[in-house]
Nucleic acid binder design. Structure first.
Lengths: 132, 132
DNA sequence: CTCAGTGCAAACTATTTGCAGATTT
DNA sequence: AAATCTGCAAATAGTTTGCACTGAG
């Protein structure tokens, strides 16, 4: 459960961290900007500062609990790292985000890096699309 | 030649625009941040302001002369749009940027979008890698 | 009790914008 | 001359940091 994740990250179990993690884990939405979280927490109750949210998210990212994405449009977007790697389709019409995973592309990326004399460390693939 | 490109974009042929376009066309490097261009222009001679560079790059982007990339690390990176689409490998060791194009991945992306009921508008694929 | 964590305000970075004067056509 | 463009400084947006206080262990 979530409190353990925080502890294993070497962080104290504080209210802001627990609350942020809970939202990330239990919301139907999966992708949040720092501002999104700030609003949600505000609606609930807590007066957690935006700075704290950024600090906590960065710590979570370092701990591997969370992944940071840089989609178009300024704000970074965070999601829980469930270990199952995936890429994203960004619905330009509704702003929705769809996750997908494709082995063909994954493999091809590794090969391409190798063909150029490189070892693939990470990648970012974002499809910008609109409903058909 | 470059001046024509500017005119066709519906823009006046001004010194800043010509100089910026020349750098983009003639440097061995192909990827520049606004700040990079600012420094290069500064070294040459001109006292073109950073704001102008941003304005010109945005206009060039709108005109389809230039492509803007959001790699990791804050600054947007611009490159001339030569019409030949490609993606990028970012060498995390030396900061070098390698271009590649892979039809397998290109096709797969279209299919994936379609499988999810979408029409692919654009995409961003960046491989972060280190020399083997 | 101690040290990590937090809120708030101030600082920063990348980029954009308003405006008066300079350029292009 | 008319309209567009530019430089500069000020404004924004997103994120980070310093510091005195709070709270977890």
């Amino acid at each position: 459960m979530n409190k353990n994740d925080i502890k294993e990250a070497g962080l104290k179990i504080t209210q802001p961290r627990v609350q942020i993690l809970k939202i990330l884990e239990t919301s139907k939405e999966k992708h949040f900007s720092a501002e999104d979280l700030y609003q949600l927490l505000r609606e609930e109750d807590s007066k957690i500062g935006l700075a704290t949210i950024y600090r906590v998210l960065t710590q979570f990212e370092t701990a591997g609990l969370v992944i940071r994405h840089n989609f178009e449009g300024g704000q970074a977007v965070f999601e829980l790292d469930k270990g199952e790697h995936h890429d994203h389709i960004v619905d330009m019409k509704n702003g929705k985000i769809i996750e997908f995973h494709d082995e063909i592309i994954e493999q091809r990326q590794i090969e391409i890096a190798k063909e150029h004399g490189y070892k693939l460390l990470d990648h970012s693939l974002i499809l910008y699309a609109e409903p058909e």
